[in-house]
């Protein structure tokens, strides 16, 4: 996946500063695939390639149309290309369900959108199918965030394979896509036994 600017917000509220993530959580990318490809059952996760992006700040004042004034200015952190004229690149992994296989053709480039401030041009991405891979397994530190209910799709049994969880919550929209609930998720730093593409560095082989 490539993009020029993207802001996938960390869920930190009540501040005038909104930090952004350096990975694409399952909740964000699954929502994107459902919106653009109609994929209901596929599970996916993504990671921006280090060295292709840098963090920048964007300050804006949201407008309150009810009282007709601007609200307190917010500063949003976003990812911008590391070098002028280049793009941010990311690797997106989608479980190879029959539905997903039929949606992607090799070499085909699809334009998708995700993250915050899409109305202001952020989050416009180009997604291109590269290849189908068979991941290896290792024990290591998780480098992204995934809902526990999405973990089995990656061959992870939360009871058996998670050595040291670090929990957070990710949103799961309801079937009408107007509401939803938060689901418990495994976040960066979790030590688990799982597919190698999910891992950052290998962890010491602790006993279970």
């Amino acid at each position: 996946m490539t993009t020029q600017a993207i802001a996938i917000g960390e869920r930190v509220k009540r501040g005038v500063f909104r930090p952004c993530l350096e990975t694409i959580p399952t909740s964000t990318i699954i929502g994107c695939l459902r919106e653009h490809f109609g994929l209901e059952g596929a599970v996916a996760i993504g990671f921006f390639d280090s060295g292709t992006y840098q963090k920048r700040l964007f300050t804006y004042a949201p407008f309150d149309s009810v009282i007709g004034t601007a609200k307190l200015p917010l500063t949003l952190e976003y990812l911008a290309p590391q070098k002028v004229g280049k793009e941010i690149t990311a690797q997106v992994y989608v479980t190879a369900t029959p539905e997903a296989r039929s949606s992607f053709a090799k070499g085909e480039v699809r334009v998708v959108a995700m993250g915050a401030l899409r109305s202001k041009g952020f989050g416009r991405c180009q997604l291109q199918f590269v290849e189908e891979v068979q991941p290896g397994r290792k024990v290591g530190y998780l480098r992204g965030s995934l809902r526990e209910t999405d973990a089995p799709a990656f061959g992870i049994d939360p009871e058996r394979d998670v050595v040291r969880p670090v929990y957070g919550y990710l949103f799961r929209p309801d079937s009408y896509h107007i509401g939803g609930r938060y689901e418990r998720a495994l976040t960066a730093g979790t030590i688990l036994d799982g597919p190698d593409f999910l891992m950052d560095e290998e962890a010491y082989p602790y006993d279970r």
């Binding site: 609930r181 938060y182 689901e183 418990r184």
Partner: peptide, 14 residues
């Protein structure tokens, strides 16, 4: 190497 968490629900309503 483990972590010990308070009781955390699997789902939380908005």
């Amino acid at each position: 190497h483990r972590s010990l968490w308070p009781e955390l629900a699997e789902e939380v309503k908005t």
